[in-house]
């Protein structure tokens, strides 16, 4: 079965086609991304690989957390592909994808994505045979809070993701037990997403397209302001 993978949770557009543990092809737009290049990237990938959309048996999508507008474009494109092609879809956290890419480490894994506004999205993982298991929740943190948390725990940890890169100075301070994955792994790759998702397609643990929605982790500013006013605090 060929799986189409799409991740647009960061400033990069990543699409891949994979089958049975093999990467058929991938297209990666790195750097400044335009929000309209996801579907053209899929088209280009199909042309290059000679795969036809009719051969695609499943769609895997990174649901973030990430930068809202770009994330939504990838999620919307992916779920509509699954809907029109009438194939199953699997939505996976983009933090899981980051951690999966460094699963060969023996250290504890911290996946950290830039959340803008001086915050990061973060989740911790542990390697298990064939993959990673998440420990705890997906969270939004300030880098200094994350650094304090790392300092309090002497266990060796490998940080991966563009959030770890961006705040390297802050989160390096806790000590030598904090390491960093290479910059090349700083974004969730659709090829890793496809590999990670394959097991769920095999186990038929798939989602309905309508149920696949981005993992925002934050309310909108308007709602935050509303809640604050409701508590009687100044806006």
């Amino acid at each position: 079965m060929i799986v189409l993978g799409i991740d647009t949770s960061t400033s990069q557009t990543s699409v891949a086609l994979g089958a049975q543990g093999e990467l058929v092809g991938a297209v990666q737009f790195v750097g400044v991304r335009k929000h309209d290049d996801v579907v053209p990237a899929v088209q280009r990938l199909l042309e290059w690989t000679g795969v036809e959309l009719g051969q695609v048996g499943g769609v895997a999508v990174g649901i973030g957390p990430g930068l809202y507008t770009g994330l939504r474009v990838g999620v919307e494109a992916a779920k509509t592909f699954a809907q029109v092609l009438r194939v199953p879809i699997v939505g996976t956290s983009s933090l899981d994808v980051l951690a999966f890419a460094v699963r060969t480490t023996r250290r504890r894994i911290g996946a950290v994505l830039d959340a803008r506004r001086g915050e990061v999205f973060v989740a911790f993982y542990r390697s298990v045979p064939g993959g990673v298991i998440r420990e705890g929740e997906y969270r939004v943190e300030r880098p200094d809070a994350l650094a304090a948390e790392l300092e309090a725990d002497p266990e060796e940890v490998l940080l991966v993701g563009n959030g770890a890169m961006l705040y390297q100075r802050e989160v390096r301070e806790p000590g030598v037990h904090v390491g960093f994955a290479p910059a090349a792994l700083a974004h969730p790759w659709a090829s890793a997403l496809v590999e990670l998702s394959t097991a769920r397609f095999i186990r038929e643990e798939t989602d309905r397209p309508a149920d696949v929605i981005p993992l925002y982790l934050r309310k909108t500013d308007a709602e935050i302001g509303w809640d604050r006013r409701a508590r009687g605090a100044p806006a």
Binding site: V38, V39, L53, Y68, T69, V73, A77, A78
Partner: peptide
Amino acid sequence: VGALLVGIAAAKSVSLA
């Protein structure tokens, strides 16, 4: 712009598929 992009993404997928 953010709202428009959601519809555009869906439309492109339908068109390509």
